[in-house]
């Protein structure tokens, strides 16, 4: 997650107005889902990969690793469509121990189509996640007049994810140096202790944050200046 976040801030089009990137991703997603053709899904997949790697300059190794990870989950999901398993004897199926396994060309084609549609959609979301800082998405929602309280909660949640990540790393290390996570039993105990302490830490930090905000004349609304963006065909700075 940290790496995705780092790419979102450091890619070549990070300062491009988020509306363009959200628009491109949503268009690709809608096309992928509505056209429902393997070739269209493949083209969208190739286009999104191209935009992410060549336009935004995100490392191809990272993009492909990410896609491979997501693809393996999707593959596991569509296997059930391609292959049907039954305990009842099936004339057209193959016996595999007590089970009957069956597959046909139509099921495989359907699974492949589904797989490519999902992979194309995922690549569109990857493009958005790897090129657009979360802050920009939050800012876009603010400009789209999403209720301020939702936007503020999103911003604070995002900030707290990283603060609690740091706490989690410290707590895990503290457990490990005292032989926590040594075996299955101690792993359960260590994880439970960390979970409890993390909750307490989150509560304590939220109270300190409130105090810190009050010290800066906060009156309930988190007013901040809007960010500035580049537009297409304008040199990124």
């Amino acid at each position: 997650m940290r790496q995705i976040d780092a790419y979102a801030y450091s890619n070549r089009i990070s300062k491009l107005h988020p509306a363009y990137k959200v628009g491109a991703s949503l268009l690709a997603l809608v096309l992928c889902l509505t056209l429902n053709r393997p070739l269209a899904s493949l083209l969208i997949l190739a286009l999104m990969l191209g935009l992410t790697i060549f336009w935004a300059g995100v490392s191809w190794r990272f993009v492909l690793t990410l896609l491979l990870t997501e693809g393996s989950f999707l593959l596991a999901g569509v296997l059930g469509v391609a292959i049907s398993v039954s305990t009842m004897p099936d004339a057209g199926g193959a016996a595999l121990g007590p089970f009957w396994v069956r597959s046909d060309a139509a099921s495989v084609w359907l699974a492949l189509n589904l797989f490519l549609r999902a992979l194309g959609s995922v690549s569109a979301m990857n493009f958005l996640a790897l090129t657009t800082p979360i802050l920009d998405l939050i800012e876009l929602l603010r400009r789209l007049r999403v209720p301020e309280v939702l936007v503020e909660v999103m911003g604070l949640t995002y900030r707290f994810i990283f603060i609690l990540f740091d706490s989690l790393e410290r707590m895990t290390l503290a457990q490990e140096v005292r032989l926590g996570f040594g075996n299955w039993r101690s792993s359960l105990r260590s994880a439970a202790l960390i979970g409890t302490n993390l909750f307490i830490d989150a509560f304590r930090r939220s109270r300190i944050l409130e105090t810190a905000l009050q010290s800066r004349a906060w009156d309930g609304a988190l007013r901040v200046l809007p960010r500035k963006y580049n537009h297409p065909f304008q040199k990124c700075n």
Partner: peptide
């Protein structure tokens, strides 16, 4: 609070916004 400011011991307790620019802008806008 316009006249008396406090900087806390742990900056992570004070930085609420994900962006430096926006975090600094909170006080003046308030």
């Amino acid at each position: 609070r316009r006249n008396v400011g406090v900087v806390f011991q742990n900056p992570d307790d004070q930085l609420f916004s994900a962006s430096v620019y926006q975090d600094i802008s909170l006080g003046p806008l308030n």
